[in-house]
Write a protein that binds this DNA or RNA. Structure first.
Length: 595
DNA sequence: CGCCTTTGACCCGCGC
DNA sequence: GCGCGGGTCAAAGGCG
């Protein structure tokens, strides 16, 4: 579909590169044709082609030595071939003064052509061939060098990504351990850093912030579908192209075009989905229900939906709408949207099924969350108890950092026709659970866990809506020490079994984010450019992402909710995150986790 | 013209 | 078997 087109084009270009290389090596004579057919690397080949003509020209008419030097270094000096571009072997004056134009164009070209044919084809042709081979070999060498450099950069990117993931987990551990002893100052640190990073200061009105986010997403949903889809596709492609996969578990289904990563790994967004899917027991259909405050008829979650029915449900004056995912022909995912009877401002969205198609990053976080929650719901005995409050379900959602209050109330119900997990995003977290783990879910964690103040320096409730990354606290709950000390025995077992999957899902969510990859790319560029590590930037890519995402999110939400934006945008944020990238992702990230 | 929403009808499962 | 409620289908109409 549309989502795969840009990626496919890019891949075609990549293939073109290979083709060029081969052509340059095997078909030096046909370089001109190759140049005519392909873009991208063509400049070299065009230069070679034109140089061939020029060179032959120079030999015949005794051109100055300077011209030959240009030929010899054409591969390093684009100006050389560019100057020759207009002339080539056609005798068209494309360089030099007017005298050269006259002499070469009008006089020497016919002479050269005639001389070549008259004076001896063997000698001239052999010399031309030698030069052609020489130039083509230079082109091939250059191409090989570029390809090798590309490969090396790719490896660096992967290495950086891996290192980041490792360091992040270590940081979580250290921070987690640290907060046990120094938590009294964390909140103040967070608030101060929140101001420092221009994050939305919604610490005092987090619930309002969430509502604004949801409303902004709902309003964004009102945009034309084509536009939204295009932008999402763009974001998806950006992420898909730039983000390496941290979780390289093999995944062979789905659209190959979207997962043709250079290293052959699958896009991270699909890993999480499949992992969750594989964890799901057959024959059971899980549902994920989300309660969120929104005035819009439907919250945006990154997918395209088609309404196929509406029905009055018993006991609720508000009709229930049925939507079907239309991003693929036979996508089984459906959702129901209905307003709460008690509070009409609360929108209850229930998702069911797994997407059978590649998703944009925003929708991927949604799908991963849904799948993770569904898998958690269906995979263990912990789901058999009605209304049981579990900690890790909240973390599954919370690791997307999209729902700041997902942890405030996550209930599992197996008494319903379908096992359902319900997330209540309408209630502000208890003071002690400000770190992200709601007291209702994991009182122990809620009190003890707090995000690292230095790394993020924000109130989690403020940061979470715009952060497509997992916030530390919910992740920290998966760390062995914390889990061993606070996780109930039953949950401990279940969580241990799913920890790997969750972590991979987390990394998938990270790497699927264009902001993260952008920051990584910027860091790599900085290093390559010799500027050293970007110390002036945030301590981690996440930091910069958080800033940009939050700023834009805050602005977007403020506009959507009546211009209540409290954090002015910065040029850095605007520049670092193109319109189609982070805002959308950040926007989607909130609602995506609702799926 | 194609896509989407609306809406009444239909199907199916469940409880009585 | 019947009624009820949830869920889905499909024709009709709207919209860009």
């Amino acid at each position: 579909m549309e989502t795969t087109k840009p990626a496919a084009e890019r891949h075609r270009h990549q293939d073109d590169h290979v083709v060029h290389e081969d052509e340059a090596q095997q078909q030096p004579e046909g370089a001109d044709d190759a140049a005519m057919e392909h873009g991208g690397v063509l400049t070299l080949q065009r230069g070679a082609t034109n140089l061939f003509g020029r060179r032959r020209h120079d030999e015949d008419d005794g051109a100055p030595r300077r011209e030959i030097r240009e030929v010899d270094f054409f591969s390093r000096d684009s100006g050389a071939w560019r100057r020759d571009d207009g002339g080539g072997g056609r005798g068209i004056p494309g360089y030099g003064g007017g005298r050269d134009d006259v002499n070469i164009g009008l006089d020497l070209l016919p002479t050269a052509t005639g001389g070549t044919t008259r004076a001896g084809d063997d000698v001239t042709a052999a010399a031309a061939n030698d030069h052609k081979m020489e130039a083509s070999s230079a082109v091939a060498a250059e191409l090989r060098r570029v390809v090798e450099e590309n490969r090396r950069l790719r490896g660096m990117l992967e290495e950086l990504t891996r290192s980041y993931g490792t360091l992040y987990q270590q940081l979580l551990q250290v921070t987690q351990h640290h907060t046990h002893h120094q938590h009294p100052d964390l909140m103040s640190n967070r608030s101060s850093l929140s101001q420092h990073t221009h994050l939305t200061p919604v610490g005092a009105s987090t619930n309002t912030g969430t509502r604004q986010l949801l409303e902004s997403r709902a309003s964004s949903m009102a945009q034309p579908h084509a536009e939204a889809a295009g932008a999402e596709d763009e974001a998806s492609d950006e992420a898909g192209e730039a983000s390496p996969s941290l979780s390289n578990a093999g995944n062979n289904d789905g659209d190959a075009k979207r997962k043709v990563f250079q290293d052959g790994t699958a896009p991270p967004r699909e890993n999480g989905e499949q992992q969750a899917s594989t964890a799901e027991l057959p024959g059971r259909k899980a549902r994920v229900s989300v309660r969120a405050r929104s005035e819009a008829p439907m919250i945006s979650d990154g997918c395209q939906w088609r309404k196929y029915g509406q029905k009055m449900a018993k006991g609720n004056p508000c009709p229930r709408a049925y939507y079907r995912c239309t991003m693929a022909v036979a996508c089984p995912v459906r959702k129901q949207v209905q307003r709460c009877a008690e509070d009409k401002s609360i929108l209850v969205t229930t998702y069911e099924g797994h997407h059978n198609h590649p998703l944009p990053p925003a929708a991927t976080t949604m799908a991963n969350t849904t799948s993770a929650a569904a898998a958690m719901l269906l995979s263990g005995p912990a789901t058999s108890r009605d209304g049981a409050l579990l900690g890790h379900p909240a973390a599954l959602f919370h690791h997307h950092a999209s729902i700041p209050y997902a942890s405030t109330m996550a209930t599992l119900s197996a008494s319903a026709p379908f096992p359902t997990i319900t997330l209540d995003l309408t209630q502000p977290p208890p003071p002690g659970a400000a770190a992200g783990i709601g007291g209702g879910l994991l009182p122990h964690h809620g009190i003890q866990q707090r995000p690292p103040p230095v790394t993020y320096g924000i109130h989690p409730a403020a940061a979470a809506p715009a952060m497509p990354f997992p916030v530390p606290s919910p992740l920290a709950m998966f760390l062995p020490p914390q889990r061993a000390t606070t996780m109930p025995a039953g949950l401990h077992q279940v969580t241990r079994q799913q920890q790997q999957s969750v972590m991979e899902t987390v990394t998938a969510a990270i790497t699927a984010d264009p902001n993260f990859t952008t920051a990584l790319a910027a860091a790599i560029s900085s290093v390559i450019a010799g500027g050293g590590p970007p110390h002036q930037a945030q301590p981690t890519p996440r930091g910069s992402n958080v800033v940009g995402a939050n700023e834009e999110e805050a602005n977007g939400g403020g506009v959507a909710s009546g211009g209540a934006a409290e954090a002015p945008p910065t040029a850095a944020a605007a520049g670092a995150h193109p319109a189609s990238g982070s805002p959308r992702l950040a926007t989607q990230s909130c609602t995506t986790s609702t799926t």
